[in-house]
Amino acid sequence: MNQAITIQNSSKPAEESKKKNSLLGRIAHLSSYEQVSDSFLSFLTTACSEKGFILFPVEDRLTVVFQHGVDMTSCVRMVPEQTSFAEICQKNDWSFFSDSELDVFTSYFSTRERASLVMIAIHPLSLEEETGYLVLVQSRLSLERNQIDTESVLMLIKDFELMLNKNISLLSALSVRNNLMMNSLADKEKMYSAFEERRSASLFSISFELIFPDYEKIETDFDSFTLYRAMVTMIIKQAGPASIVHKKKNYSLRMILFTASETDYDLYIHQMKKPLEKLFGHSRIKKVEIKYEGTARTSDYALDFLAGER
């Protein structure tokens, strides 16, 4: 593929090392989410790119887990097959697309974003045993309209990959796109079985209102969309198979935890939040309100609780 945009000359080694150390220094002591977000934004700044995203492999496709400057429609549509992406991109270097070469991306961008595209630069990312991609976008919608400078970030690629691999669990959670509404029939069967075994049913309500005051933003802002789903995914994972979690219309959760004996709910809430704090940050998870709502003695009471009637 032809490189349509002139790439600026590489900086001196000392300057490259300074950029690298500056990037690594800024992400120290941050949560996984802030580490990836901050280093990604620093990477874009160094590359003079106002738009871009990270594609993460999920089964046979790729999905956007972090983005900057790209509209939500494009981020949601950007789910190419891994094989088709691998066919058009170089294995260990930048691939550049411009003019008619951009036609291959038509179905992945909104009409507005597609009409404004000038050039796309893509570099593969080695993520454990699979391949993700770093995508830089040059657009007429960008405020500065700078030329993308891939030479200036060559020394950052390996460290960027290393940082991403240390945060694979976060990227995996952010990549979840399946419907979070639970299987009511399976949940009822689990519930009836638990009560027959005389297991204790502890009830919890979980609110994200302090993080998302306007919960409709979850449906219109891609970063809020992925962050919410990632947190819910990890909560469900933390709760484990001996639980039932339902999402309400206001994006709050109702959860039932089945145990052999009464639960120390303060300890349980503390233990649930700890891994979430590591991934998403203490200050953010502190705003997730997890409240113990008592116990259910019957399946009818438990069903009413899940429905928000208790």
Rank of each mutant, 00 (worst) to 15 (best):
R112A: 14
A86T: 10
E81H: 10
V104S: 06
L180I: 15
E209C: 10
I206E: 00
D149T: 02
V176K: 09
S84A: 09
K274N: 10
L154A: 13
E16F: 08
A307T: 03
K158W: 02
E189Q: 13
I7P: 04
F160D: 00
V65P: 05
I244L: 05
M163V: 08
K278E: 11
S175I: 04
H282E: 15
N179I: 11
L279Y: 05
K12R: 12
I5F: 06
S283A: 13
Y108M: 10
A28F: 13
L303C: 05
I148Q: 02
L170S: 04
F56T: 01
T150P: 09
K248H: 11
T6G: 05
A239R: 03
N165V: 05
I122S: 03
K273V: 01
D103N: 13
L180G: 04
I206C: 03
M255F: 07
D60M: 09
Y108H: 10
I235D: 01
E216N: 09
K247E: 15
N183T: 03
Q138K: 06
T263P: 05
S299R: 07
V288E: 01
G132F: 04
F56C: 01
M191P: 02
Q8S: 13
K278I: 15
I235R: 00
V135L: 02
E144N: 15
A14V: 14
E128H: 08
S17P: 07
R177K: 12
F195I: 04
G294A: 09
Y228M: 07
E309T: 10
A47W: 03
M78V: 02
R284A: 07
D103W: 12
A173R: 00
I285R: 05
K190G: 03
E144T: 12
F97N: 00
C89D: 02
R310L: 15
V153E: 06
L134V: 01
Y265Q: 14
R177E: 05
A121T: 05
S107C: 05
R310H: 01
S126G: 09
K287P: 07
